[in-house]
Amino acid sequence: MKRFYLVGFLLLMSFDTLAQISFKYAGNHALPVAASLDWLLRVFGAPWIYGAIVGYVGAFFTWMSLLKHAPIGPAFAASHLEVVSVLLLSAWLFGDALTPSRIIGAVLIVAGIVCLGLAEGREEAASGHPDSGPAP
């Protein structure tokens, strides 16, 4: 069962990461930003946006199957921890600088997400039934 969770969480994180990286490529390809049909055509005319859709749909179904078995606390935390993988991958793929403010900010955000995950876990233990978590 432990392996099921581990694989599930990693899969969720991978889908979320795929979505964010695809969003970035899709957006870059469609520059400059404009509230126009041309911009929409540039977004949907390149393959990247479909990677984002695959990532979203994959994350949704992974999240739903995880919630069926996994406790909400860790599942909630895992559904938001893609900030870490995206941070590392964007340094590699896009050459984003890992500046002190980004690293400190990321550490605080991850600590906050872990607290929220723990809080959700306690709620569930106290009430005896899982609360529905946010979609990824």
Partner: peptide
């Protein structure tokens, strides 16, 4: 598309 991905996320 207007800022680095790491910052946006």
């Amino acid at each position: 598309s207007l800022l680095p991905l790491s910052e946006g996320v």
